[in-house]
């Protein structure tokens, strides 16, 4: 079956990658499924905007936008867990608890970064400055901004992975 510019075969081929994308963003199976669903609906509604080149790339773009909109809408930290909609209340409590521990890990991981890395990550990730702007303000080449960002994020990721392993051990 063809749905305008996008065929269902093409759409189905994109779903595994899209789901991985959504799961890493939401860190939760239910939320990932919802995000994929929203994303697919949006892609079908907006398919007249698809340039016909790379459906998977376009779906990633849409997925990222849908997730950003959800985050902006939510205002509160992370995605709230709706206790009424949750299949089991215990799962919801665990999810909320996990979310809280994750944020704690982010704060602690960030705190342990070198000061210069914290500054560049704050300017780019929190304040939304372009690399060029951050480089100019810090009076360093753009390449330095890139390498500090890369290092800072890698360190933070390692810290978060270690935190996740420790939490798994504690809960085992």
């Amino acid at each position: 079956m063809t749905t305008g510019a996008i065929t269902t075969t093409e759409l189905n081929e994109c779903l595994p990658a899209l789901h991985r994308f959504a799961f890493t963003l939401t860190r939760n199976e239910d939320r990932a499924n919802d995000l994929v669903q929203d994303c697919v609906e949006r892609c079908l509604r907006k398919q007249h905007l698809f340039d016909g080149q790379n459906l998977r790339s376009w779906m990633f773009t849409v997925c990222r936008r849908v997730f950003l909109n959800q985050i902006r809408r939510d205002k509160v930290r992370g995605t709230p867990v709706d206790m009424d909609d949750a299949p089991q209340a215990k799962l919801s409590i665990d999810a909320a608890q996990e979310e809280k521990m994750h944020y704690q890990d982010v704060v602690e991981g960030f705190r342990d970064l070198p000061h210069n890395d914290k500054v560049v990550l704050s300017l780019v990730a929190i304040e939304g400055l372009k690399y060029e702007e951050a480089a100019e303000l810090l009076d360093v080449p753009v390449g330095t901004v890139r390498s500090r960002l890369s290092r800072a994020r890698s360190r933070l990721r390692e810290a978060l992975e270690q935190g996740a392993v420790q939490e798994e051990r504690l809960s085992a």
Partner: peptide, 25 residues
């Protein structure tokens, strides 16, 4: 990224970290 699970996971982790840092401003 669409074709590489590892790079994808890495990219989305970074993207997620950006959202987290903004929430934790």
């Amino acid at each position: 990224l669409a074709d590489r699970h590892l790079s994808l996971a890495q990219a989305v982790t970074y993207l997620r970290t950006t959202f987290d840092l903004r929430s934790l401003k």
